[in-house]
Design a protein around this nucleic acid. Structure first.
Length: 600
RNA sequence: GGUCCCGUAGCUCAACUGGAUAGAGCAACUGCCUUCUAAGCAGUAGGUUACUGGUUCGAGUCCAGUCGGGAUCACCA
């Protein structure tokens, strides 16, 4: 909070001088004064009554008098119960504003190149089905957190880990082999990831049918699964894959390439990218190697059945399998390998995994294993655990078809933003390309804001019919505010007397009204908001900040004319404040991965 | 069953390490476009923060228990 640190330091000194006690700076609580009270900053003095041996009111009064005498930026104070409300001088706010408006990337810290980087993994898809809304939350979170960390001054590498191997991949391959008749994305006109996904579902159907038949012959569900010829074929295919069988590998490559082409389109539509892509098919061998070494060093042990395990019961977890009895890798094996590989690549100071909270246990185990293996960087591992996206019908399940497909969702959003934009008729002079681009910008703004405004760790509900709005607490509202400001600024640029608003300074004697002051104070919190969002890895703080800024601006906009030739001084000030607001809105939206349209 | 997460307005979400009378948006109702973009602004209504106890100057927040929802505990990923 602006002036917060100064206030803390002064309060510390006050307590020392007045009561003779030395306190830690964080023993003071400073907060923004609630709107219903007079003041800008509030010091909570309840905890200090112990030292002052006086009532909260009196304690506040004593400290208030001290602070006014010692802090040049303070104006006056009042106390209500144990709350000491302090008013900051208008001139102090205006000086800060003046400095802020002349800083191009206000609030953005330049990246320290020499510090150890952060690595953030997000998306991490399987290559057997297209991306759905759950992945979209993951992808947007990862992207935004990376932007925020970067803005907070950290070097960040964005990486993706493709889960491209395993029995589930073989299932779609097998179904394609059996029923595909050589179908390709070209021949079918289907996006590659959707085509492969179709065969993944197909496999499930075939398997169900086969099991049904076996069950009708008197088998139980479990027996049917065990005796399924299809499952046997899938396992056999996996075995061949691991053995390097040319035909299987060829098919695997072909189908995975279809999927990658499809993912590429979705990533591009979402506006995200990666610095590096890891493939589990490349890392699982390293994982196995590390496990072998760990086994030799007795970090792991071999069970009678031949499987390799680690005993984590002392940590309150279980005995966890690391290698199957046939020596093949499980999920966590390749994660160990990937982690090591990444550390060698980047020597990160933090490795953030953006993965759903259904894998909390997995990451607890992974971190522990890495620690027990003796890697010093085990503490750098951090699981950014986010909540699932639920539908009104409950959890999304790929195989049951109860998912909101990412590509379809985007298509629907774009046509909805087109419908609304046309209805409003504000861009009738746009040519088709420009208009299409705007529909996308707005549609994406709506989706991204919707998914990012919620605290990452909380699960959230998505109702396809009504969740995405274009007014109220939404991305388009913020985008609209930005465009609205741009419109005013461009009008100003066409008028002689206003044109030079950029080059004049802000006089610290300007009599700012309530709406102007509230807006200024809020905007000046931007740098702190970025730091806090970075520290908590939470884009929702940026979203809230941006929404509040837009609301505050609109409030100001409605109460005060900006372009008023009779009030030139306030017009120039308001133009500067407007331009500053637009700048902050644009930077905030950027951190969320949202574009700011000049017009809408 | 063990472990973990969650329960705030009709709905979706806020509330910084415990701080003032728990805030927004949507939906509902009322106003405001001859004036800088009405995707906006102003207003009305909506709450025993699931329940019961405890800790303290102060609890949505911390502790214990109850009820309800979810995740996880695989030689799946």
């Amino acid at each position: 909070m602006t002036f917060e640190n100064d206030l803390r330091t002064a309060a510390l000194q006050a307590v020392k001088d007045l009561f003779g006690d030395e306190l830690k700076p964080d023993s003071f609580q400073v907060q923004r004064t609630k709107p219903e009270f007079e003041g800008d900053l509030t010091l909570v003095v309840f905890p200090l009554t112990r030292l002052s041996k006086k009532s909260p009111e009196v304690t506040g009064k004593i400290i208030g008098e001290y602070l006014i005498a010692h802090c040049p930026f303070l104006d006056s104070f009042n106390t209500v119960k144990g709350f000491l409300n302090l008013r900051v001088k208008n001139a102090a706010w205006l000086n800060m504003l003046n400095e802020a408006v002349t800083t191009p990337d206000f609030g953005i810290k330049p990246v320290e190149d020499d510090s150890a980087p952060f690595v953030i993994e997000y998306s991490s898809p399987n290559t057997n089905k297209p991306l759905h809304l759950g992945h979209v939350r993951n992808i947007l979170l990862g992207w935004s957190v990376a932007q925020i960390l970067n803005a907070a001054g950290r070097k960040v590498y964005k990486v993706n880990l493709i889960n491209d191997r395993g029995i589930h991949i073989c299932k779609s391959m097998l179904a394609w082999q059996k029923t595909g008749n050589g179908e390709t994305p070209e021949s079918s006109g289907m996006k590659g990831d959707h085509l492969v996904g179709k065969y993944y579902v197909k496999f499930d159907q075939l398997l169900k049918a086969e099991k049904q038949e076996l069950i009708s012959k008197g088998m139980t569900e479990d027996e049917a699964e065990k005796n399924s010829l299809l499952m046997a074929e899938a396992r056999e295919m996996l075995r061949k894959w691991e053995a390097g069988d040319t035909d299987v590998i060829q098919l695997w490559k072909t189908m995975n390439d279809w999927v990658y082409a499809g993912f590429h389109v979705t990533y591009r539509n979402l506006g995200v990218e990666f610095d590096k892509i890891y493939y589990e098919s490349d890392t699982y061998q390293l994982g196995k190697k590390i496990v072998e070494e760990g086994l030799a060093r007795k970090v792991f042990f071999k069970k009678e059945d031949g499987s390799v395990r680690i005993d984590l019961t002392a940590e309150g977890l279980d005995e966890k399998i690391i290698l199957r009895s046939d020596g093949t890798a499980v999920y966590i094996t390749q994660d160990i390998g990937t982690a090591k590989l990444r550390y060698d690549d980047y020597h990160f100071s933090k490795m953030i995994y953006v993965v759903g909270n259904e894998q909390d246990y997995h990451f607890k185990v992974l971190k522990l294993i890495i620690k027990k293996l003796g890697y010093a960087w085990s503490d750098a591992i951090y699981h950014l655990s986010y909540g699932m996206v639920d539908l009104p019908s409950g959890k999304m399940k790929s195989r049951e078809g109860t998912v909101v497909d990412a590509d379809e969702l985007l298509k629907d959003l774009f046509s909805e933003s087109e419908r609304i934009t046309r209805e409003l008729g504000k861009i009738d002079d746009f040519d088709s390309d420009l208009a299409q681009a705007l529909y996308r910008t707005i549609g994406l703004g709506a989706l991204k804001y919707f998914l990012l405004k919620v605290d990452p760790e909380k699960r959230m509900l998505f109702n396809p019919a009504e969740s995405i709005d274009f007014s109220g607490d939404t991305g388009p509202f913020i985008q609209y505010t930005f465009a609205r400001i741009k419109s005013v600024l461009s009008k100003a640029g066409q008028t002689e007397v206003f044109r030079d608003y950029t080059s004049v300074g802000i006089p610290d004697t300007y009599p700012a009204n309530k709406e102007e002051k509230d807006l200024i104070i809020h905007l000046l919190q931007f740098p702190d908001t970025i730091q806090e969002a970075a520290q908590r890895l939470s884009p929702s703080l940026i979203a809230q900040f941006a929404f509040h800024a837009a609301r505050q601006y609109n409030l100001f906009y409605h109460h005060h004319p900006i372009l008023d030739t009779d009030q030139l001084a306030s017009s120039l000030f308001r133009l500067k404040l407007s331009a500053f607001t637009a700048n902050i809105l644009n930077l905030s939206l950027n951190l969320l991965g949202i574009d700011s349209p000049e017009r809408m």
